[in-house]
Design a binder for these strands. Sequence first.
DNA 1: ATGTTGACCGACCATCGAGTCGGTTTAAGC
DNA 2: GCTTAAACCGACTCGATGGTCGGTCAACAT
Lengths: 205, 205
Amino acid sequence: MERNLKKRETMHRLHAMGLEIFHAKGYYNTSLDDILKELSLSKGAFYHHFKSKEDYFISIIQNLIVQKVYALLVEPLNVNENPLHAIVDSLENALEPGKSNEMAYGFMLHDFMTEFNKRNTEISSYLKDILKVWEVNLVSVLKNGKIDGHIARHIDCEGVATYIIASYLGMRSLLSENNGRQLKYQYLQQLKHYFNSITERQVVA
Amino acid sequence: MERNLKKRETMHRLHAMGLEIFHAKGYYNTSLDDILKELSLSKGAFYHHFKSKEDYFISIIQNLIVQKVYALLVEPLNVNENPLHAIVDSLENALEPGKSNEMAYGFMLHDFMTEFNKRNTEISSYLKDILKVWEVNLVSVLKNGKIDGHIARHIDCEGVATYIIASYLGMRSLLSENNGRQLKYQYLQQLKHYFNSITERQVVA
DNA sequence: ATGTTGACCGACCATCGAGTCGGTTTAAGC
DNA sequence: GCTTAAACCGACTCGATGGTCGGTCAACAT
């Protein structure tokens, strides 16, 4: 049984280190040797576990990235009764730098999406699927929010979800190259203005 | 004098074709031979005009990308007296597919920024500078809009500019892989909601 | 006309990185 | 103990690609 343990251990190390370095330097800018050197592993070991660099990355997506997106962006959507508050809270948290295992700005889906866009359609589609999950969940809580009277009735929930996603993705682009603190604050501030504009007005009799 | 003409002609062809192919396939995913074959030019010709691939791309940035950003995003900011309307119009136009010389979704600054981020700091900084110019101009017209009574006084213009840029950049990520028509409409719709929330309310006496 | 130089050619070089493969070590089954 | 095969090693192949260099040709100056 120790054999099985060894395998899991090695694959886990490969996954974790791969995600870290790929995210830090970009997939195409990282050679397998870069990662292997860091782990003191050989080419042979690598190709024993994965059939290619691409297969390896897909494995990372399915084992780590999916989890992170769920944990950071999907599950928190249901912790607050008001969906707009839940969304603000989840984004605020997701934009927090240096969360879980020192990965700056926690969530790297967008970086990879842009890197693979037009270069590797298979990986792109995996990443798009993850984004889609987020979108679907956003739309769902927004619609509930409409029913519960938190969001104005004439609002297009799909449009709102799109807009939230767009601004969040773009924000991450800006964050990766600037003073994050202030940008994050500005972003959340404006997001609240926006949310204010789609909130159901209280008819103060 | 014909010699000079020939040179300008060749460099212009290299610039235009380079931008087109780099944008379509990505800088790192495009080899010089890809471009040279398309133009029936030789390696020798290329290195006669440019000292490296990187130098070549910087030249493209300075000659073409800067122009496009100005034309699409900066100059249109002053055509409408109300800055919020001017911004909506400019973004609507910039997101129009297939404008000027068949370049889908006109504006590619963001694609390049993400590609070079963490890989080539020199090129990144050139691209960031261009974005900065846009930002500065946005802030400027927003502040004028505040003076002219189009925007509520308590609004943070820098924050608004950041938010606009973020949502626009993110939008382009989404557009590059989906049904653009509907997304664009949704985006502009929500942008208007947002703008509505930062507009100076008329005190209807 | 003649020498010079700019524009261009294309074979060649050097490097890098993904993937291969025969070999070695060691846990597990009998 | 002995065999088997999983886990791993690392030298090697091989294609891709950025960049070099000696040479050709035609425009321009004198």
